[in-house]
Design a protein around this nucleic acid. Structure first.
Lengths: 210, 210
DNA sequence: TGTACATCAGTGAACGCGCGTTCACTGATGTAC
DNA sequence: TGTACATCAGTGAACGCGCGTTCACTGATGTAC
């Protein structure tokens, strides 16, 4: 029995923008990179391992990433998307009329991301070579920084001005996370992040609601 | 003319504890490691490069460091010594009766070290494999942490208790430094660290002097 | 609809490199007598 | 003081490994006609 309309059937999946061979190798390689880093550390990211994990030959990634630094930049960009979205998800759970609750929620998302993906966090902020002017990267990292500036907007400007508040809040959470990640793992394992955040931020001065 | 007392002359330098061949290769290798990291990044630390920099064969370090992680641990330990001493030097310049000035001074030392040795700073806190229970390492890093707990002692305990103050102060400076190091270098090059510190710490609540 | 051709993603072999580690060695130093 | 010996830091060759990168290729997809 010959297939009826086999041509149109094969054309429909083609309209899904599936490129020539692999589904979307570029995306698959970045996925594999994120997994590799989380499983074996920031150093473990390599073109050959990423290719193996995606099930292609080690020469295939060259068609999508000109160098290891390009791949790394893309993985960090992807990490920023997840980072921002994890903060946004916590914000959604907070009372949207309580700016302080929103800040604490976002910072809980910040900490959760870092503690759940410590190696990825180190890759993002640990001084690894990346292309800071890559468009995909700047778009993604702007999403993260956007969350932070957004939640700080209701804060009363301090002596350091608007930007001072942002840097202060960001410094505290970034430093706290960095310190905790650097400790021997079992030393603070019973510390409850939410409680610690409350303790660290006892009274944030807010603007009068306009 | 035969040398008089040549024997005792040659014994005197021997009493300087100079080991067999090299002066003190272990120390020289750590020196070379610090230089390598500062010059070419935290990733550039390798047994072979360190040996080359110290002018010995690449098999020589094996007599002093069982593995790369051991060498790295020793380099980080050395970095902590410098880190602590840089904070102590700034503290010496401050009015010793002004606890707030002492805190700001120590944090200036903290920032100066990080900005002058960014790669070393990343090596110390960037999640690289090291032996946290190495005695030389714990002794050195305890010196750094000792400075931080010392300067925080005069602070009024907050809701998070004594330890909360320490974690808060440390988080702020650690996070601020981490964020600045992660930016494109020229973005904040005109920021005066001392001024920023003053802005970030407008009013630290101190204990009554007993 | 069918055919010829261009495009280009993925292949597999090969390259040279730097790496950590091992090994038998050598030669200077320290020690016992 | 002099001699024999033990110790051990440093040597140089060799190992196998994973790496990024290159290359001619092949074969599936997309397009022009």
């Amino acid at each position: 029995m010959p297939p009826i309309k086999s041509v149109s059937l094969s054309k429909t999946p083609a309209s899904k923008k599936r490129p020539h061979h692999h589904g979307d190798l570029r995306v698959a390689l970045i996925d594999a990179g994120v997994e590799l880093v989380n499983e074996h550390g920031a150093d473990a990211l390599s073109i050959r391992k990423v290719a193996a994990k995606a099930g292609v030959s080690h020469a295939a990634p060259a068609h999508h990433f000109a160098s290891l630094a390009n791949l790394r930049t893309a993985v960090i960009a992807r990490a920023h998307l997840q980072f921002a979205s994890q903060m946004r998800e916590q914000i959604k759970l907070a009372n949207k009329d309580d700016p302080r609750a929103i800040i604490l929620a976002a910072l809980k998302g910040y900490m959760d991301f870092a503690f759940e993906n410590p190696s990825l966090f180190h890759l993002m902020f640990g001084g690894f070579e990346k292309f800071d002017d890559d468009e995909e990267f700047t778009r993604a990292s702007d999403l993260s920084y956007g969350v932070l500036s957004e939640i700080c907007a209701p804060l009363l400007p301090g002596k350091a001005g608007e930007e001072g508040n942002q840097i202060l809040v960001w410094s505290i959470i970034h430093g706290y996370v960095g310190i905790m990640l650097n400790r021997n793992s079992d030393q603070y394992e019973d510390a409850d992040p939410a409680v610690l955040l409350e303790l660290i931020f006892p009274d944030l001065p807010l603007r009068d609601p306009a």
